[in-house]
């Protein structure tokens, strides 16, 4: 039971020979992820953590079929890497780089949509189903954050994920799947597009979204709830409640323009749709407890 990734997914790693690529490949494997092949142009014949490396995605998947691609390449090469994976028929892609050019973010999202693929990122730590598998960079060994359980988490922020998830775990819960959609203004996949997966996942009892000022992703979640496309309990925590107008708070997507994208507005819209909105990270845990009581799936 998990969303986006599980142990039966076969992963190809683009940029596997880089320092980040090789470091996190090791940890993905250690967690139980099925990594089958790697790609770094010019480095065919090498291996990383026992995983064979090929020049191109086409050559890699011909020898070792993969259904998902994890991309560890710098932002300016990300579009090329995503399109290369799509070209080889891969339909599940995670890309972590921060700083992908805006117009290329549009092209990546449009290409994924046109091919029926899902691209998560950029500017994210990736996706993890604790205790099962991950595509990305999560310190799953920190037990007070990455504890397996039955709460689904979607987030726009890596640093805030640790902060909020620790509160979920402290309240006696654990995580089914955690998906970092990323902090960019044009992410490849949006919160609401993942809700049907969490709805269908029998391992998820409730969903926490970690949002922030700017954009409309939180409003789209409210819309999905209003339309009954998602009806499990949902708790939101939103950063930037007191952020001054017109200032970009860290993430490219975190800015209020022309009065749109305020946390105040998002909070009201979510509440109207039936979501609970936490004012502080700690409250995420207590609101979940209120909604669910003690987590039945908790192994604690």
């Amino acid at each position: 039971m998990s969303v986006f990734i599980d142990r039966d997914d076969t992963i190809l790693i683009q940029g596997i020979t880089g320092s980040e690529g090789s470091f996190w490949t090791r940890h993905m494997i250690e967690l139980g992820t099925t990594v089958v092949v790697g790609v770094t142009p010019g480095k065919e014949g090498q291996s990383v953590e026992g995983i064979p490396v090929y020049h191109s995605v086409r050559r890699a998947v011909a020898a070792h079929p993969a259904n998902a691609a994890m991309i560890f390449v710098p932002p300016r090469f990300t579009k090329d890497a995503v399109f290369e994976a799509l070209d080889s028929g891969i339909r599940k892609i995670v890309t972590i780089a921060e700083g992908i050019p805006l117009h290329e973010c549009l092209e990546i999202r449009a290409a994924a949509r046109d091919r029926g693929a899902r691209v998560v990122g950029g500017n994210t730590s990736g996706v993890i189903s604790p205790g099962r598998a991950m595509m990305g960079m999560f310190p799953y060994w920190i037990e007070r954050v990455y504890k397996p359980g039955r709460i689904g988490i979607m987030t726009r922020s890596g640093s805030l994920t640790n902060e909020v998830t620790a509160m979920v775990v402290a309240a006696g819960f654990g995580v089914s799947s955690l998906i970092g959609v990323g902090g960019d203004s044009v992410p490849g996949t949006r919160f609401a597009e993942l809700l049907p997966d969490f709805q269908a996942d029998t391992g998820t009892d409730a969903v926490v979204i970690i949002g922030e000022l700017g954009g409309t992703m939180e409003e789209e979640v409210a819309e999905a709830m209003e339309a009954r496309r998602f009806n499990k309990p949902l708790v939101a925590f939103l950063g930037g409640r007191n952020a001054p107008k017109g200032r970009r708070m860290g993430h490219a997507g975190a800015i209020v323009t022309g009065g749109k994208g305020t946390v105040e507005g998002k909070t009201a819209t979510l509440r109207k749709a039936g979501a609970l909105v936490a004012a502080r990270p700690r409250e995420v845990g207590s609101l979940l407890f209120e909604l669910l009581g003690r987590n039945p799936g908790s192994k604690a």
Partner: peptide
């Protein structure tokens, strides 16, 4: 002096909630 955009933004929120003021992000 914080790490991560999301966390830094939330620390800013919490300071304002507590009646404090921020010199810099």
């Amino acid at each position: 002096m914080c790490a991560g955009a999301g966390l830094t933004t939330v620390v800013y929120d919490l300071i304002v909630d507590e009646g404090g003021t921020v010199a810099n992000y």
